[in-house]
């Protein structure tokens, strides 16, 4: 027995019973490869590609020693970005949440970073034949956590004061109750300016290293990297990482992801990162399941753009 069912133009098609035309798929592929190859070579020859050298800790400490010293002190007092980050680096906070759920907290700490130890204390402790550094580290480590934070916070306050100056690369701060923190930071600044900190941080655990996590985290806690990025219009409020240094096109396909960070409300939200990811995951699922979403799958039929695409076909009818 046959029954009639409704025809759904947004889901179904009638089998094509019209004419065919010659088609050479192999020729099409070859022509496409040639066209793309010619275009690629032409663009590469005309415009090349950007390659701004990576920023080093040496550059940072040499060009902006006060920012470097302030960041080092903030790692010690726990107020720096990494020191107060939370998962996956440490347990200092819970990370962004939606509806009280923090995925980062649930997954936990898996890339363990102790900002004070990894960025400041351990590198200074490697300085050879340096009794002042050894004594300062020893004094700091033997103090209570409360005392350590008081010293570091006092130094942070002093080094971020307006009148602080750097003379011949040395950061000069007003006297205060910093304990050994002043010596430790001074030693770290000198170490970084010599270039030794770059290699020490990369090879803290072993000779070979392809893991740049710690130096990048330390670098991003200061202002030097961000100020440099602002010059190249790469800051978050400048449509961020979809841009490229100079005038080259970057990851333009990330425009939608980047756009959410410009939206008032999201741009100032403490949970923006997770909220934007949630939105993007939702939109990705919508795109994936367009064929099954009533209304959305009808847009092509309603907009009639297909009449333009198949204009030869409709004209011939």
């Amino acid at each position: 027995m046959k029954r009639r069912k409704a025809f759904h133009p947004d889901r179904e098609v009638n089998p094509w019973a019209g004419p065919t035309r010659p088609y050479d798929i192999a020729k099409e592929v070859v022509i496409c490869v040639v066209v793309m190859a010619v275009l690629t070579v032409a663009l590469a020859v005309l415009f090349g590609s950007p390659d701004d050298r990576a920023v080093t800790l040496k550059q940072w400490a040499t060009e902006t020693p006060i920012d470097f010293a302030a960041t080092a002190a903030a790692e010690l007092d726990g107020s720096a970005g990494t020191a107060s980050y939370g998962p996956p680096y440490n347990s200092a906070s819970t990370g962004p949440s939606i509806l009280g759920i923090s995925p980062a907290k649930i997954v936990g700490v898996h890339v363990r970073v102790n900002a004070a130890k990894d960025f400041v204390l351990s590198p200074v402790a490697t300085l050879p034949q340096n009794p002042a550094a050894t004594l300062a580290i020893s004094t700091f480590e033997q103090a209570t956590l409360r005392q350590q934070q008081q010293w570091a916070a006092a130094y942070t306050k002093a080094v971020t004061a307006k009148q602080v100056q750097a003379v011949d690369g040395r950061v000069i701060v007003a006297k205060g109750n910093f304990g050994p923190v002043g010596v430790i930071v001074d030693q770290l600044v000198s170490m970084a300016q010599s270039g030794a900190l770059d290699s020490t941080m990369l090879t803290q655990e072993r000779f070979f290293s392809t893991d740049s996590t710690k130096p990048l985290l330390f670098l991003s806690d200061g202002s030097y990297l961000a100020n440099r990025a602002a010059i190249d219009h790469l800051q978050g409020d400048q449509w961020g990482m979809m841009n490229e240094t100079g005038s080259w096109p970057g990851q333009a396909w990330l425009w939608l992801y980047t756009m959410w960070y410009q939206v008032p409300g999201l741009s100032t939200s403490d949970n923006a990162d997770l909220q934007v990811w949630a939105i993007m995951m939702g939109l990705t699922l919508v795109l994936l399941f367009v064929p099954f979403i009533p209304g959305l799958r009808s847009i092509p039929r309603w907009t009639r753009v297909y009449r333009l695409i198949w204009r030869a076909h409709y004209k011939a009818q």
Binding site: D51, D52, A54, P87, P88, A104, I106, D211, S220, V276
Partner: peptide, 26 residues
């Protein structure tokens, strides 16, 4: 392995870490 990579990595980490994926995709 240049400045662009440094900047993109330090910016992208927050979004990826917020989902919990940063634990395995650093």
């Amino acid at each position: 392995t240049n400045f662009d990579a440094q900047w993109i990595a330090t910016q992208a980490k927050d979004g990826i870490n917020s989902t919990g994926a940063g634990a395995v995709f650093n």
